[in-house]
Simulated assay, not measured.
Amino acid sequence: MGIDNDVRAGADWTAAALTAAGYRADFSPSSLWEVERFLSTEAPDGRPRPRGLLGKDLDTRVAMVGGYVGAQPWPPEARSGSQGRRPPTRRRQWH
């Protein structure tokens, strides 16, 4: 087990938790809009709702959402980078 497996397991757990809460978290690029909707709903004005999904364990839950976002595949136009350069880091695609 390496960090890649840990990150993937965390992203999968987060996707399942978001899905159970009514958000579409299927690792598609458009699911990032669902993450935005989740954050806007659960932390209006940047403050977590006390009894909401971010009301406890905020640091852990925000890190898990960040892991989900980071697990998104690069879109084709970003793979070659702007002006023919590669992105600053290469990311593994998970499907």
Rank of each mutant, 00 (worst) to 15 (best):
residue 81 G to Y: 07
residue 18 L to G: 06
residue 87 P to T: 05
residue 94 W to R: 05
residue 68 Y to W: 02
residue 32 L to S: 06
residue 56 K to Y: 15
residue 34 E to L: 15
residue 75 P to K: 10
residue 55 G to M: 07
residue 43 A to W: 14
residue 24 R to K: 14
residue 76 P to S: 15
residue 7 V to S: 00
residue 55 G to L: 07
residue 50 P to Q: 08
residue 41 T to E: 14
residue 47 R to N: 13
residue 72 Q to W: 03
residue 7 V to Y: 00
residue 52 G to S: 03
residue 16 A to R: 09
residue 4 D to H: 13
residue 78 A to Q: 12
residue 27 F to N: 04
residue 20 A to F: 06
residue 84 G to V: 06
residue 26 D to S: 13
residue 83 Q to S: 15
residue 29 P to Q: 07
residue 46 G to C: 13
residue 84 G to K: 09
residue 10 G to A: 00
residue 37 R to W: 14
residue 59 D to V: 01
residue 62 V to K: 03
residue 74 W to I: 03
residue 35 V to Y: 08
residue 42 E to C: 05
residue 13 W to R: 10
residue 76 P to K: 05
residue 92 R to Y: 07
residue 11 A to R: 00
residue 70 G to Q: 00
residue 15 A to R: 04
residue 87 P to Y: 08
residue 44 P to M: 10
residue 26 D to P: 04
residue 6 D to R: 06
residue 1 M to Q: 13
residue 43 A to F: 11
residue 13 W to E: 07
residue 79 R to F: 02
residue 73 P to E: 01
residue 74 W to F: 07
residue 84 G to S: 12
residue 27 F to Q: 03
residue 58 L to I: 05
residue 11 A to F: 01
residue 71 A to F: 01
residue 15 A to I: 09
residue 21 A to I: 01
residue 77 E to W: 11
residue 31 S to C: 15
residue 71 A to M: 00
residue 67 G to L: 00
residue 93 Q to T: 09
residue 69 V to S: 01
residue 83 Q to N: 08
residue 38 F to V: 12
residue 62 V to A: 04
residue 59 D to I: 02
residue 50 P to H: 08
residue 23 Y to C: 12
residue 50 P to W: 09
residue 89 T to W: 12
residue 7 V to R: 02
residue 60 T to Q: 00
residue 54 L to F: 05
residue 14 T to V: 09
residue 54 L to H: 07
residue 95 H to C: 05
residue 69 V to I: 03
residue 20 A to S: 13
residue 49 R to H: 02
residue 48 P to N: 13
residue 18 L to P: 07
residue 30 S to Q: 15
residue 95 H to F: 11
residue 7 V to L: 02
residue 50 P to G: 06
residue 38 F to A: 13
residue 21 A to M: 09
residue 1 M to L: 12
residue 40 S to T: 11
residue 3 I to F: 12
residue 85 R to D: 15
residue 77 E to M: 10
residue 24 R to A: 14
residue 70 G to N: 01
residue 61 R to G: 03
residue 93 Q to K: 09
residue 95 H to Y: 06
residue 74 W to R: 07
residue 19 T to A: 14
residue 43 A to H: 14
residue 38 F to Q: 03
residue 46 G to R: 09
residue 66 G to L: 05
residue 31 S to H: 14
residue 88 P to I: 12
residue 64 M to I: 02
residue 38 F to P: 03
residue 34 E to K: 15
residue 66 G to P: 04
residue 4 D to C: 10
residue 38 F to D: 09
residue 82 S to K: 14
residue 88 P to W: 13
residue 27 F to M: 02
residue 32 L to H: 11
residue 10 G to F: 00
residue 15 A to L: 07
residue 49 R to V: 06
residue 64 M to F: 03
residue 31 S to P: 09
residue 72 Q to L: 02
residue 47 R to G: 09
residue 57 D to P: 03
residue 42 E to L: 08
residue 92 R to H: 08
residue 45 D to S: 10
residue 69 V to D: 02
residue 95 H to R: 05
residue 33 W to A: 15
residue 37 R to K: 11
residue 42 E to A: 05
residue 25 A to W: 01
residue 14 T to W: 08
residue 65 V to T: 07
residue 40 S to I: 15
residue 9 A to G: 01
residue 58 L to Y: 06
residue 83 Q to G: 07
residue 79 R to Q: 07
residue 80 S to I: 13
residue 24 R to I: 12
